[in-house]
Design a protein around this nucleic acid. Structure first.
Length: 118
DNA sequence: CTAGTGACCCAAC
DNA sequence: GGTTGGGCCACTA
């Protein structure tokens, strides 16, 4: 059952999913949102992580965007990259991670099927 | 209650 | 290949 439907706050649900990400692996915002029960709420994952206090037990640095790149601006972005590098995650010349290898693959219903544009 | 914003995502141009 | 535009949901004012 999804943490969101378990009566837990949205933030807590997101944090719970991020906390499940194994070391040396990365997940996308949309993927975390899907597992957390917020299928199309990838933005809220970023919003929740943005509100995440420093020093928390949540490995927020393992969360990247759908392209495997860091969306975080400035200082935090560099910090995230260093933390991932410390866990063995390699970035390519374009500062992107190979999701085919480092991407986290939970057994949940993957968020697929979007409308996009008219 | 409405309006604005965002560490996003996807499809079309 | 990069750029543009729209849409989703949750939170704050």
């Amino acid at each position: 059952m999804s943490a969101a439907s378990a009566g837990v706050s949205t933030y807590q649900a997101i944090y719970a999913v991020v906390r499940r990400i194994p070391r040396g692996r990365v997940a996308s915002y949309g993927q975390v949102a899907g597992v957390a029960g917020l299928a199309n709420a990838a933005r809220q994952v970023g919003y929740a992580l943005h509100a995440l206090p420093a020093g928390s037990a949540v490995p927020w640095h393992r969360v990247l965007n759908a392209r495997g790149a860091i969306s975080l601006p400035g200082y935090h972005g560099v910090t995230q990259r260093l933390l991932l590098a410390r866990e063995g995650v390699r970035f390519d010349a374009r500062s992107r991670v190979d999701l085919a290898q480092f991407g986290w693959r939970p057994r949940r219903s993957p968020p697929s099927g979007r409308k996009g544009r008219s």
